[in-house]
Design a protein around this nucleic acid. Structure first.
Lengths: 204, 204
DNA sequence: TCACACATACCGACCGGTTAGTCTGACCCG
DNA sequence: CGGGTCAGACTAACCGGTCGGTATGTGTGA
């Protein structure tokens, strides 16, 4: 017999997942499918099997819901990048691994990526600022990798590191536009190719 | 003394620009600033100095207005690409020129680019399909350039041409996210660097 | 019995689109 | 040359519907 942990709300309906997670999952799917503005809170609560009262009990606003989606993705990606970037490997391998990993995880969470790039401007100014700040941290960690390689002489210095990073993230950003899971290439295959292009462009 | 050309509507108010163009310009600016869904037709007509009747006299729907913005951009970019791709030059110069040019024109029309990548999913399914088709034509002309170079042996065949094109357009797509006109680098500088990265990645 | 976790019912604002009508310049006919 | 007429360009007023958000009620486990 198990006791309920106090921090977890009791109601889980037929499903075992707690309500806030269910709301977040439903919102993520619907935002990706229809866009933020075209998804009504009514749709979200219906998809999660609750009512608006429940949503506004856990989240301050529709905007908050979107912000939570962002926070989750950002945290995940920053963790992964740090792991790869701080590994005990030569810089070219660390950069390649990090570059390929962001492609794989982006493909594996295409919904989040779609929302991320399509709906950022729907966030309230302050939340937008906050997200941008965390995003910059991510960008800078990645850029540091490139600069490290440039200083060590294994990467070309022909292009400023900032631009190199934007170049690569552009292709990541773009994935949600063209990548199809039923296409000829799997996530790892795409990741290998894109990381390869980056490394080839950086050859001295 | 001049006669009015019959094809041009008479009313131009204080400004000399005809009403449909004014509506299109106002819509472009507002869509880029606030997004499609958050821009009401009321805002558009107020910015253009007319009323809703005027808008619906010239355009079938708000959706039509967006489609017109797309059509203009697509036509422009396809023309420019064709010019560069069909020039009498070695393939590596044609690719470089085309790759750099799309960066420059994108930066020079950042509003349109922003709308393009952020609001495509707001188009009605049929208009979306139409835009996608024209966009594919563009993609394929670009890809043909890469393949031509690969067959000629001047570009590496390590990466499928399709992926190379998506890689580059990813960075173009991404421009509206990070490029700032008051930043340290001008359009041509960015274009040179991005084209350089592409060509370097394609070295055999 | 009290705090929490929701459900129910409702609000004012605003949206895209429509409708009926007005103004005006161009053209035709005598 | 002149005045009637007609189409096109637009205006003002309005519509049904939907939206995000809220106020209040209720059941329940601790």
């Amino acid at each position: 017999m198990e006791r309920q942990v106090a921090a977890v709300p009791r109601t889980t309906d037929g499903d075992g997942t707690p309500v806030p997670q269910r709301l977040l999952a439903a919102a993520t799917r619907l935002f990706a499918e229809q866009g933020y503005d075209r998804t009504s809170v009514q749709e979200i609560v219906e998809a999660a099997g609750v009512t608006k009262g429940a949503l506004y009990h856990y989240f301050g606003s529709k905007d908050d819901l979107l912000h939570e989606v962002y926070a989750r993705v950002l945290r995940l990606q920053q963790e992964r990048l740090d792991t790869f970037a701080n590994a005990d490997e030569p810089v070219e391998k660390r950069l390649r691994d990090a570059a390929a990993d962001v492609v794989v995880t982006t493909i594996e969470n295409l919904d989040d990526a779609m929302i991320f790039f399509r709906s950022m401007h729907h966030l309230s100014p302050e939340k937008n600022k906050q997200v941008r700040a965390e995003r910059r941290r991510y960008h800078e960690r990645f850029r540091a990798l490139v600069e490290e390689g440039q200083k060590a002489g294994v990467f070309s210095t022909a292009t400023p590191a900032d631009l190199v990073v934007d170049y690569h993230f552009g292709s990541v950003h773009h994935l949600s536009t063209w990548y199809r899971p039923d296409g000829p290439m799997g996530p790892q295959g795409v990741a290998d190719h894109l990381a390869d292009l980056l490394l080839r462009a950086l050859r001295p």
